[in-house]
């Protein structure tokens, strides 16, 4: 990988080729033999070591979590002794039926589209950085940024459950209990966020023509 990099030295001045030891966190210019940043103490690594394997492992975990997150109920509603379960998709359908279209849309995008889109985007990026010829690095960098930015917003549904469970506790008259999917879904959001964090976007640009 390093030999490959140096053959492109003349075209793109990268940190590796210049033997520069700029700290990623505080931007301090360290001497070329430094291993730890002299300013902030962060470890200076050439690349996030085995970052791709970590990303893939986290992606697999999130795909596994995706199944219980969608199949299991995210909450139980007890209304006059009658208990109904609702899943994430079920909640969207109910909201749509009630005519709250904007909210239904928000939940659908945040809880259904964003996690799938994020997983697919990261799978694509992992595949892309393995290619030897990389075209449209800019577009993929954009994709990565969007993926990184939207990840947190999937947590909305978990927070909705938290509020409803706290607010609606009136015994048999009306009460809401959290469902197992809330745990799976929270885990899903965390693992996709970690997968995006561990992904080293520099790989997108490595050995660019």
């Amino acid at each position: 990988m390093i030999e490959h990099e140096s053959s492109h030295q003349s075209k793109a001045k990268t940190a590796l080729s210049q033997y520069q030891r700029n700290c990623e966190l505080c931007y301090f210019q360290n001497p070329s033999d430094a291993c730890i940043c002299e300013c902030c103490g962060k470890k200076l690594s050439q690349r996030k070591k085995s970052s791709l394997q970590h990303t893939i492992a986290l992606l697999i975990t999130s795909i596994i979590l995706y199944i219980p997150a969608n199949l299991l109920p995210i909450m139980y509603t007890n209304y006059l002794g009658e208990i109904t379960e609702s899943t994430i998709v079920g909640g969207v359908v109910t909201l749509w039926g009630q005519g709250s279209y904007p909210v239904a849309l928000i939940i659908f995008v945040a809880s259904v589209l964003v996690p799938i889109g994020k997983i697919l985007a990261l799978i694509w990026l992992c595949y892309f950085v393995k290619q030897t010829k990389k075209r449209s690095s800019e577009k993929n960098q954009q994709l990565y940024r969007v993926t990184e930015f939207i990840g947190r917003w999937s947590m909305v549904d978990v927070f909705v459950v938290a509020i409803l469970v706290a607010l609606i506790q009136m015994g048999n008259l009306m009460s809401v209990h959290p469902g197992e999917a809330a745990i799976a879904f929270a885990g899903l959001v965390i693992t996709t966020m970690l997968a995006a964090n561990t992904f080293d976007s520099k790989l997108i640009w490595q050995s660019k023509d």
């Binding site: 793109a12 001045k13 990268t14 940190a15 590796l16 210049q18 520069q20 700029n22 990623e24 931007y27 301090f28 210019q29 002299e38 300013c39 690095s137 960098q141 976007s201 520099k202 997108i204 640009w205 490595q206």
Partner: peptide, 16 residues
């Protein structure tokens, strides 16, 4: 110690 005169891009590793 001094302030950096150039920085490495956090995202694409270009020296700027």
């Amino acid at each position: 110690m001094s302030q950096p005169s150039q920085v490495t891009c956090h995202e694409c590793d270009l020296l700027v």
